[in-house]
Nucleic acid binder design. Sequence first.
DNA 1: ATCCTGCTTTGATCCTGATCAAAGTATGCA
DNA 2: TGCATACTTTGATCAGGATCAAAGCAGGAT
Lengths: 246, 246
Amino acid sequence: MNDTSFNPRDCGTCPIRHRAVCSRCEPDELEHLDDIKYYRTYEAGQPVIWAGDPMEFVASVVTGIATLSQTMEDGRTQMVGLLLPSDFIGRPGREQAPFDVVAVTDLTLCCFRKKPFENLMGSTPSIGGRLLQMTLDELDSAREWMLVLGRKTAREKIASLLMIIARRDAALHKRLPKDGMEFDLPLTREAMADYLGLTLETVSRQISALKKAGVIQLQGKRQVHIPDLQRLVSETGDDIDGGHIF
Amino acid sequence: MNDTSFNPRDCGTCPIRHRAVCSRCEPDELEHLDDIKYYRTYEAGQPVIWAGDPMEFVASVVTGIATLSQTMEDGRTQMVGLLLPSDFIGRPGREQAPFDVVAVTDLTLCCFRKKPFENLMGSTPSIGGRLLQMTLDELDSAREWMLVLGRKTAREKIASLLMIIARRDAALHKRLPKDGMEFDLPLTREAMADYLGLTLETVSRQISALKKAGVIQLQGKRQVHIPDLQRLVSETGDDIDGGHIF
DNA sequence: ATCCTGCTTTGATCCTGATCAAAGTATGCA
DNA sequence: TGCATACTTTGATCAGGATCAAAGCAGGAT
């Protein structure tokens, strides 16, 4: 670690710099962490934690996808968070998990025991600052999601979800979304319905409609091809000049 | 300030302890602040800031009510935040306001110039910690709101909103919501519709329906009386054992 | 191969909440 | 006092998405 030619980089996404999430991040904090961090894997479909359970760790997603969701007594469920690699799970300072967390695909988490993590936050103010920025980002996207849920039509909802996934997929590969891009839909129709406040039948119908209209092309059920990005954006109902798009 | 009999209290709501929000808070931080903080008032209906505008302050609500909202090109709008006294407005570290902020009633803000506030955050880590906790709370309520928007019926939405306001009103007076409580509805039917993703006509009809069913009583258009709190809770669709209710 | 099982598509019908329209109510102002 | 304005209520009709139902499709196990 005294190789000064190594240029420490901050990936800007993980609250703690560590190799598993970003191999280019400076590893100096890692040394104190070996006793407080551990990896855990889950199979697709497996619960990570239920709402109300005591949660003795915080974590960041290394690989795979998880969802945060809420279920009513009668079974209606609403997804309230979609957790992709580099996203953070957990609440320093809180005892209980506020929502259900479920692995959608096979999932690897990098976990930190909560108490020592909180101590580390106390002694390393930059971690708290990073976490605040991440939380503000999440709050902003939750609020954009609220517009989708409250005011958009089914077709606009589907287009919006496709754009969100397209953008995150592009960001993961460190490029911009562009015409002709392809990506994998990581969610079942039912999970998309839970994301958007729709039924799975409506999701299926609207995807078919967008396909028939030529806005998207599908290879199989899950691989999406976007011939014309602006076309898709115009289906979302969002203002193109709205700054938040790209 | 060297009166040691003064028992410093932390109101737990304001990111900076200051008299205007909580007269029982310790005022020691206030002394550094006179040059960076100021009060500002707005009339009902007046905008505080528009989405995309540069925002050179952060603030907390002292009196009155403001809304955070998003509007689509065609005029559809969705409220994404309801800001009551002690709520925080603004993003340390961000240049632009992400959403519109509008005063619903006459409004007084306690504003802090952003740059010095950020410096203060750097030198006083507890402020960042407080802000993180407040942001996590906001994120949790945004996510509960998402369940309301995505999965609840119009009647459940209205009941949920009444409970949210009842709870916050009770909290403001430092008591628990109870049978027979009364409170003021601070929002117009249209604002409630924007909160809930409904039209104002549907809001009006559902309020009439709840009144006719005896779940609520109205004095005038705005004063609400809850004869039986459990009755109202059962109309929200929420799980009574869900911990988040009270 | 064949049968499962889980996911998806498509069809028919229904219902909740939106839309369009008009009248009712309260408040402030001339 | 009467009018104007903003907000609310109520009614009639419509439509988007939910619901119920059935069939299609792919992958895995036997």
